[in-house]
Every structure is written in C-alpha cells, then in structure tokens.
C-alpha cells in the first residue's frame, strides 16, 4: 500500500487527486476505484470530482461519507433521486431495495426510467447509473420487497435508512424496524403538489406521528399522481438530512415534520405534540 500512497501523492495536484490519476492507480495496483478513493482521502487528498463540495465538506468529512453505508428503500420517484444524489455526494456504499421493473407510467418522474429500460429491474438501473456517475461508490442491489422479516439483514451495518416506499403499512413497519435496530431513518412521501418528510433518530418512533390513523394503505397520491418535480424536491431534502446524520452536523428534522405545498409554496414545520418515544420506554429512559 506504501507504493499506492506514493503514487497518489506523486500524481496529486496540490491536495486534489484528478480522476485520471485515480483510475490509473486502480489499474496499476489492481484495486477497486473505491479502495483508491479511500486511500486518497486518508492521505488528505480530495478526489477532484468532489472539489466543489468544499467548503461545505472537508477531506475528513468526505472520508466519513465514503465509509458510510446507506439503505434506500424504494427506487421509484424519490428513490431514483436519492441514488443519484447520494452517489454524487460520495456515500461509499448504497444498498438499494425494490422488487419492481420500470413501466411506462414511471417515465414522467422517475429519473432512472427511460424508454430504453422499460421492463428492467429498478435496482439494476441504479447499479448501472452509479457505475456511470460515480464508479467509486459500491451499490448493492436487492430485488425484494422490504418486510419486518428481511429488515434485519438489509439494515445490518447501515448508518442511515431512507424511506422512499409507497405504502403506509410498509412505511410504518420500516419506522418500527429502524426503532428496534437503533438506526436513523429519514421519511419522505409525495402526492401531487404536496409532500412530507421527517427524521427518526435512534430511540424514537415517528410512525404514529406521520400516519396517525395507520388504517389507509395509500394517500391522496392515488388520485393526484405525482409530477416530475415533487419527488426531486422531497428526495433532495432527504439527502440533506442523511448527509447531516452521517456527519453529525446541523439540526435534523426530528421531533417535528415538514409539510410541503408546492402549489402555494408553503413549507410548514410542525412539532410533534410530545417527543417521539419508543413504545415501552419512559421519557429519559436510557437506551
């Protein structure tokens, strides 16, 4: 590895490592692009592709993102943008979970859908897209439906989970699974001009706050559909939350939720009536 370090320092331009040098090093030392990226970041070199992340992200923060694992549940309207943005951000490992293939009615809004890949599994399109956009990022495709039963395997080692599912039941089960495993989870949902999002930190359970009745499977999206821009807005907000969770920065949207009305351009930040506490745990109860 010493040779790799010397190689990277030799080919660095200032404290930036050009993409061509990263690719050449991977080839020469028979490593994955991600392994070279991690070595560069450890040396204090910023891969040049991330240079505009500064001053927002330092080299050590970029390394933290590279060493992070994020699970994206659903690779549809929200999920496609989540994959795109988390890969460009430089999140090292993305686990993408979706049982479906692309259909024609996805084309109006799902960024990974195209006429050429109708019938293609959504998780395969995610792998292909990240391979084009940021091949240093590892994508683990899981062509399956999330359930309480497979949640443990899917979320093992995850630093954050992102909810881009499309039924209320599955979203509530996800909140419970993340509560049980103590993994931060970022919820997002859309319908027409409208959207909502919230963040659940370990020890919290937001399920009854985001879906108080819990009886209906789907919301007004069945009537309104979803246009091109709503998933892009909500997914981008979710990625900002994930980024803060991974870096331990800023103030996250927990203990409250955001309701977006793009028709009237209203963004409502609503506090929960009480802190979302895991069932069975008393307030202030450690763990």
């Amino acid at each position: 590895m010493e040779d790799l370090r010397v190689n990277l320092l030799t080919h660095a331009q200032g404290d930036l490592l050009p993409w061509a040098a990263q690719v050449a090093a991977a080839k020469r030392f028979q490593l994955r692009l991600g392994q070279v990226e991690e070595a560069a970041l450890e040396l204090g070199l910023m891969p040049s592709r991330y240079q505009r992340n500064r001053q927002t992200l330092s080299v050590s923060e970029q390394l933290k993102l590279f060493r992070s694992r994020v699970v994206i549940l659903g690779v549809g309207g929200l999920g496609g943008y989540l994959v795109e943005e988390l890969a460009r951000l430089g999140t090292g490992t993305l686990v993408v979970v979706d049982p479906d293939t692309f259909e024609e009615h996805n084309l109006n809004r799902q960024i990974l859908a195209s006429p050429a890949n109708l019938g293609v599994p959504k998780v395969d399109a995610a792998v292909e897209r990240v391979g084009i956009v940021n091949p240093a990022v590892r994508v683990i495709p899981v062509r399956a439906t999330f359930s309480r039963e497979n949640g443990g395997d899917l979320f093992s080692g995850a630093d954050a989970v992102v909810d881009a599912l499309d039924t209320v039941t599955a979203r509530m089960e996800l909140a419970h699974a993340c509560r049980d495993m103590g993994i931060p989870m970022v919820h997002g949902a859309i319908a027409g001009w409208y959207g909502q999002m919230a963040t659940q930190m370990p020890g919290e359970d937001i399920s009854r706050h985001i879906y108080p009745s819990g009886k209906e499977q789907r919301g007004v999206e069945t009537r309104l559909g979803n246009p091109a821009f709503t998933p892009a807005v909500v997914a981008s907000l979710q990625v900002a939350e994930v980024c803060k969770i991974l870096l331990g920065q800023g103030r996250c949207l927990n203990g409250r939720m955001l309701f977006l009305n793009l028709l009237d351009m209203e963004f409502l930040d609503m506090e929960f009536d009480e802190a979302p506490i895991a069932s069975g745990a008393a307030p202030g109860d450690p763990g």
């Binding site: 309207g77 881009a164 499309d166 209320v168 949902a189 959207g195 007004v220």
Partner: peptide, 8 residues
C-alpha cells in the same frame, strides 16, 4: 387538517 400523503 392535512391530507394523507404516501407516494414514493
């Protein structure tokens, strides 16, 4: 009063 929003 807000509507139920659940799409992804």
């Amino acid at each position: 009063i807000f509507p139920l929003v659940g799409g992804g």
